[in-house]
Each structure stands twice: as C-alpha cells, then as structure tokens.
Amino acid sequence: MEGSVEKKFPPVIELNVGGKHYTTTLLTLVKCKDTMLAAMFSGNYDVKKDQHGRYFIDADGENFHYILNYLRYGELPPKEIAPKIYREAAYFGLQRMVEELEKHPSFLARIHRESFRAQFPGYTKLVNSIINKIYQESSKNTETISSIMVTLFAKDKKPKLETFDKNHWCTMKARNKKQTKVDFILGPWTSRTTEKEVMDCIAYDLKERGFNLTKEAIGQCSYKCDSPPDYPGEATVENCPKAIYKITFHWWK
C-alpha cells in the first residue's frame, strides 16, 4: 500500500478544503488508519483536483485546521468549539478524536441533556410545536409579548368517577376572564422527574434557540366532573390535578 501511495501522491500535499487552502504532508493525512483521509490518499481512489491542481475535499474549510492539528500533534480543539469539531471528527472518521471529544465536560453535559429529554415521550415534538406556533402567530401579534400555556403531568392518575373524561383538553379559568384552552400537553412519563424540572428543561431549550422568555406556574386545569345523580356514595366533585404553566416570550428585551 505504501508503495502505491508514494507513486500516486507527492510527499507534500496541497489541499482545497471547502474553498480554503492548506499545505500538509502525505504522512500526516494517512497517519490514522481507517479514516476518510487515509482512504482518500491510499492510492485506491481517484481524488478530485481543483483548477489549480489542489486536491479537493468537500468539508468545512474553516474548521479543518483542527483536524490537521489533531493528526499532527494529537491536539484537541478549545472547549468552546469542541461540539462543533466533534461533527468534523465524525465526518472524517477520526474515531479516537471522537472518543476524546466525548469526554469533554461540555459534550458530556450535552449527552446528559439528551438522555434527560428522552425520558419524556413527545418532548422534541412539543418544543418544535411551540416554536412553530410562535412563528405562525408572529405576524398577527401587535403586543410586545406572546404567551402560550402548557399542561405538564408526570403521572396519569386513575379517576374516581366513571364520568370523569380522562381525554379532556385542559383549560384555564382566571378570575374575570374567559376559560381558555391550553396550547400543548405533555405527559405522563415514567421517571420521578417533576413537572417543574421538565418546564425548566423546556425553557432552557427555548433560550438556547435564542428566545427571551419567562415562565411561571399559573395553577391547575379548571376541568371538573360532578358525580352523577345515581352515584352510590356522597355527592362529590372531581377536579383535574394537572399543572398548567405559562411561557411568555418578550420581543422587546
């Protein structure tokens, strides 16, 4: 294999990576076996060249120097951009670099957050639906804020009354105001995570997307069910125990 590499490629390689130019050695590019770069410069493939004779690699040219520095010195990128370079390392098949980046605190935190979110069926869909609703209503909103209401419930309790509608859509009735339906509902989930912790997670993810917002618990669902006339026990009223939160988006802060 080494003989075929030496015949096909010069010892010093000129590269065009996504429009950015680099100069390195052939030995650096093939240093780590079983990678995309080692395969490209193995002599077994026809590597395309640009109009100036540089070998072309279709990748992010701005970040490629971190890949080269890892191949040269085993050097990892600064912590603040480690997640971005992780994508490049995976793209080039640098498995050892990938594994080292995965041990970085910022990346471990990201993995932990992903595991946390995975506990709640429909979580990602909920966050995307919130963003889509805000987007669709943005042109109609003439206020400095936008608000949505979300019902969160960790457990789906069995109702006491047979006439209690488990599938009702939660509503909120504030004093001197009309009864309003919540926008979204999430639950139940099997972990011991509280509704407040899930709300904190939703707020965190929305803020990560760039939204300026506040959140608050505003009470429980106003749905209630009266016992039927032929109820064998003492007349009773069963209320929905599900918690309702309000997320307020601030457009002028």
Rank of each mutant, 00 (worst) to 15 (best):
Glu2Asp: 14
Gly3Val: 04
Gly3Ile: 11
Gly3Asp: 09
Gly3Glu: 13
Ser4Tyr: 12
Phe9Tyr: 15
Phe9Thr: 07
Pro10Cys: 10
Pro10Asn: 14
Ile13Lys: 05
Ile13Ala: 07
Leu15Met: 10
Leu15Trp: 06
Asn16Gly: 08
Asn16Gln: 02
Gly19Ser: 01
Gly19Thr: 03
Lys20Tyr: 10
His21Met: 08
His21Arg: 09
Tyr22Ser: 02
Tyr22Met: 08
Thr23Tyr: 02
Thr24Val: 15
Thr24Asp: 01
Thr25Tyr: 03
Thr25Gln: 01
Leu27Ser: 10
Leu29Trp: 07
Leu29Lys: 00
Val30Tyr: 09
Lys31Gly: 05
Lys33Ala: 04
Lys33Trp: 13
Asp34Ala: 09
Asp34Ser: 15
Thr35Ile: 03
Met36Thr: 07
Met36His: 03
Met36Ala: 10
Leu37Tyr: 08
Ala39Thr: 14
Met40Gly: 06
Met40Tyr: 14
Phe41Glu: 02
Phe41Arg: 02
Ser42Ala: 14
Gly43Asn: 03
Gly43Ala: 13
Gly43Gln: 04
Gly43Ile: 03
Asn44Lys: 15
Asn44Thr: 06
Asn44Cys: 09
Tyr45Ile: 06
Asp46Phe: 14
Asp46Val: 13
Val47Thr: 11
Val47Trp: 02
Lys48Met: 11
Asp50Gln: 03
Asp50Asn: 15
Gln51Ser: 07
Gln51Asp: 13
Gln51Met: 10
His52Tyr: 14
Gly53Met: 05
Arg54Ile: 01
Arg54His: 15
Tyr55Gln: 02
Phe56Gly: 04
Phe56Lys: 04
Ile57Gly: 00
Ala59Tyr: 05
Ala59Glu: 05
Asp60Met: 02
Asp60Pro: 08
Gly61Cys: 07
Asn63Asp: 15
Tyr66Arg: 03
Ile67Trp: 05
Leu68Cys: 10
Asn69Ile: 04
Tyr70Asn: 00
Leu71Thr: 00
Leu71Asn: 09
Leu71Gln: 00
Arg72Pro: 05
Arg72Tyr: 13
Tyr73Arg: 14
Tyr73Ala: 01
Tyr73Asn: 04
Gly74Met: 00
Glu75Phe: 01
Leu76Ile: 12
Pro78Ser: 06
Lys79Arg: 12
Glu80Trp: 12
Ala82Asp: 10
Ala82Gly: 02
Pro83Tyr: 12
Lys84Gln: 11
Lys84Asp: 14
Tyr86Val: 09
Arg87Val: 00
Ala89Trp: 06
Ala90Val: 09
Phe92His: 05
Phe92Ala: 06
Phe92Ile: 01
Gly93Thr: 04
Arg96Thr: 15
Met97Ile: 01
Met97Trp: 01
Met97His: 01
Met97Asp: 04
Val98Ala: 03
Glu100Tyr: 01
Glu100Met: 02
Glu100Ser: 12
Leu101Asp: 09
Leu101Arg: 00
Glu102Gly: 03
Lys103Asn: 06
His104Met: 15
His104Val: 13
His104Cys: 15
Pro105Ile: 13
Pro105Ala: 11
Pro105Gln: 08
Phe107Cys: 07
